[in-house]
Design a protein around this nucleic acid. Sequence first.
DNA 1: GTTGTGACATCGC
DNA 2: CGCGATGCCACAA
Length: 131
Amino acid sequence: MSPGFSSPPNPAEFNAQVWAMVRKVPAGKVATYGQIAGLLAVPEGMNPRDYQAFSPRWVGGAMAACPEGVPWQRIINSQGKISPRPGAEEQRRLLEEEGVEFNARDRVDLKRYQWAGPEQSQQEQQASFWP
DNA sequence: GTTGTGACATCGC
DNA sequence: CGCGATGCCACAA
């Protein structure tokens, strides 16, 4: 089910921000939960340290309810692997179609495929596409 | 009221 | 570099 791990102050709004950020991730790139959480603004009145500690879970919770149109497949954990969940194979297949290479251990090289950020997303798209 | 668990992150070996 | 184990909060049984 959706545990919702510690609901953020405004779950609906937080989820919307997460989805918006995920939509900015270009094809062929991947982002980690913590990265997405870090790109989002910290809710007021909340200790950044706590936010950093739990926001990744909230991102996960948001992905659990991700609507259509959101490239949820590009969001993986900091280890560069797909979290063990039903549909993981589907996710991996989709990423491979986008050009993301998987290691022999079902792992992605984050140094190479991790999303640089929302500012450089446009450059990434129109600039050099990998050989 | 208590126990277990979760689309993660980080530290240690 | 890779893999295993631990911790955080809140909510469900």
